[in-house]
Amino acid sequence: MVNSEQRQAIEDVVYRSCLALDTRDWKGFLDLCDESFRYTITAYSPEIRKDMTWLEQDKNGMDTLFTNLPRHNSDHSPITRHATVYTVEVDEAKNEATVVSALQVFRTQLDGGATELFAVGRLHDTVRLDHSGVKLAKRVVRLDTRLLGYGYHVPF
């Protein structure tokens, strides 16, 4: 059973990860991640009836992806991640927690500031709990939305 202090710390790391990515604080985001961190975006396609992986990186891969961003031509509209932590389950033996959060991503146009819903899905996080604090060990972004217009370069 997760105690309220533990849950608070776990929720905190999920929300801070969204804030860091929203503000393009890449270092801040990576600081929240364990060295073994893996990030994946997945979706199920009812068209081909298959699970798909759309992005998969380790911590170094994420760092490189962020570093390369200025070299690419990208949509500069900011996106805002809204996460709500639904469930937290702690595995004391492993010093881990599995966390499921709802995720909505909104995109705001630079010209005029119109905001549109960009994507919905879930965050399936594995959080490491040890003496050094609470760290993200794994994040699987499970997208329901698959029609993303002209796309985006920054992971959700």
Binding site: W54, H72, S74, L148, Y150, G151
Partner: peptide, 11 residues
């Protein structure tokens, strides 16, 4: 959909 080239082409 999050690839380096496709987003650029679509943009």
């Amino acid at each position: 959909p999050f690839g380096r080239n496709l987003h650029e082409d679509l943009l």
